[in-house]
Each structure stands twice: as C-alpha cells, then as structure tokens.
C-alpha cells in the first residue's frame, strides 16, 4: 500500500516536473513575474516582513513553536534553532513530512502525508528566511538538472552519497536506529534542499563544496538511476538490495520450485 502510494506520488511529481519543464516559457515565466519581484523586494528591504512570511508565522506559532521556540530560537532538548537555516531546509523538512515531528525519536521519519501543503511550506520557509536568511534553491533548478552531465554526477554520487544511500539509491542503515532514506520518488527540489542543508545526520554539501552545477549533475544521476531508468535485467529487481534478497530469492523461488518438483518426480503415480 505504502509503496504504491509512494509510486503514485512519485509519478505525480514527475509528471508535474515534466509539465513545468516543457511549459517553461508559459509557467515559469508567469511564476517569475509573480514571485520574483516579491523575492527581490524582500532582499532589498531587509527586515520588512512580506505577506507570505506573515502567513508562515501564523503557522509557525501554532505548529512549530513548541520545539523550535519563539522566533525560531530553539528549545534546549527539544528542537534546534532555525535562525539561518533558510527556506530550503524548511521546505525539505515540511514537504517530505518529516516536520512537524510526531514524537522525538532517533530521527524524523519521512511521511507520504505531509501535514502542510506545498504552499504552506513556502510560507513557513519565507518566515524562517525572514528570521535569518539562509540557503535557497535556485529557481532554474529543473533547467540546471536537464543540462547536467549524468556521468559526472555518478562519480560525485559514488564519492559522496553511496556510502549512506547505497549504490542503487535504496537507502541504508545508520547507527542506533537512524537511517539514510531511499531516494526513489524524490523531487529535484528535495534532493537539492537536502544536499544544501544537511537534514538530520546528513552532512552539509554547501555550494562551495559542490557547486550548483555539480549538484545538478548529481541530481540528474540520481533521477536517472532511481526514477527514470527501468531496470533492464528483469521484471523484478528484488528491491535492488543486492545479495541479501538474491539469496532469499534462490531459496524461496528456485529451491522451493525444485523441491516441489522432486516430490512430484519421485511421487507415486
């Protein structure tokens, strides 16, 4: 159930990304005319709070303040300060359903059912950005990714990412109950936000370490191997878990089929 829901969600997002990309002139251009002036306006007159941030503050004061404190200053033992984390971090955490966190645990689990809509997450992001600036995702990310070199991204992925997320992007276990999540069905924005802000235990890959172009290469590679390319080696990829599921399959499928066959062959007829 969860898997198929996730797949559906992935499809929807992918289709959405495609629509945005192909209709770039119309949609992106339109969005630019609406959002960009506001964004630049905010930067130019630092300190002034815009309408989105006000809406974000309302949400913040009802849903986040318990752990992250007044004005994002953090609460000792509950939640870290959010000053300076930027809108990228907020949107990543909120859009993937990690925040608001239901209970304190080894790490915030992602969820297919985020509490807030994407629009609300943007408001929250605007508010946090108003509190202390921080990292933002480039607006032309999809175009950057489309222009990215998959091969270079692969090299970067293997050096920086595969140790936790696995060669095939399926995720992996970390110490004491934490884990690196699977990358399947993840959007370009979420990948970018995660690298930029280092959520949870993930190290930060800031722009001076991986330039936006390198990040785009990386995203292009991840999308290629995890979401775009179909496994050529069969109908079932056994979850790409490697030898552990392959070993299981040889006993559950191969050995079982042949054991039943031995019973048939040697059975009385």
């Amino acid at each position: 159930m969860a898997a198929s829901a996730k797949r559906r969600r992935g499809w929807r997002k992918r289709l959405g990304a495609l629509a945005r990309f192909t209709g770039a002139l119309v949609i992106v251009g339109g969005l630019y005319s609406v959002f960009s002036p506001g964004l630049y306006a905010q930067e130019s007159e630092a300190g002034a709070i815009d309408a989105d941030a006000v809406k974000g503050q309302e949400l913040y004061d009802t849903s986040c303040i318990t752990c992250h404190g007044d004005n994002g200053e953090g609460v000792e033992g509950r939640g870290p300060s959010l000053i300076g984390v930027g809108s990228a971090a907020v949107e990543f955490q909120v859009n993937t359903g990690r925040m608001p966190m239901a209970a304190q645990g080894a790490q915030a689990p992602d969820s297919d059912y985020p509490v807030f809509t994407e629009e609300e997450a943007e408001w929250l992001g605007a508010y946090i950005e108003y509190l202390g600036g921080g990292d933002v995702v480039p607006d032309d990310l999809d175009a950057l990714v489309a222009a990215g070199t998959v091969g270079e991204g692969g090299e970067l992925y293997r050096v920086n990412c595969s140790s936790c997320h696995g060669f095939s992007g399926g995720g992996g276990a970390l110490s004491s109950g934490a884990h690196a999540p699977s990358l399947s069905g993840v959007t370009n924005e979420e990948l970018y936000q995660a690298m930029l802000t280092g959520p949870q235990n993930m190290p930060v890959f800031a722009d001076n370490q991986l330039t936006p172009e390198q990040k785009a290469d990386l995203i292009a590679y991840v999308q290629f191997i995890v979401n775009d390319d179909r496994d050529p080696g069969g109908v079932f990829n056994l979850g790409r878990f490697g030898p552990s599921t392959e070993g299981l399959a040889i006993f559950l499928v191969g050995m079982t089929a042949l054991l039943l066959t031995t019973l048939w062959i040697a059975g009385k007829s």
Binding site: S163, S168, G172, P243, L248
Partner: peptide, 12 residues
C-alpha cells in the same frame, strides 16, 4: 574510497 551501504557478499 568508494563504498555502498548494504555491501554484502553472495549468500554462501
């Protein structure tokens, strides 16, 4: 310098 999480040998 490269490794993957869940690096396993074959079952045997």
């Amino acid at each position: 310098s490269v490794v993957s999480s869940a690096s396993q040998p074959d079952f045997y």
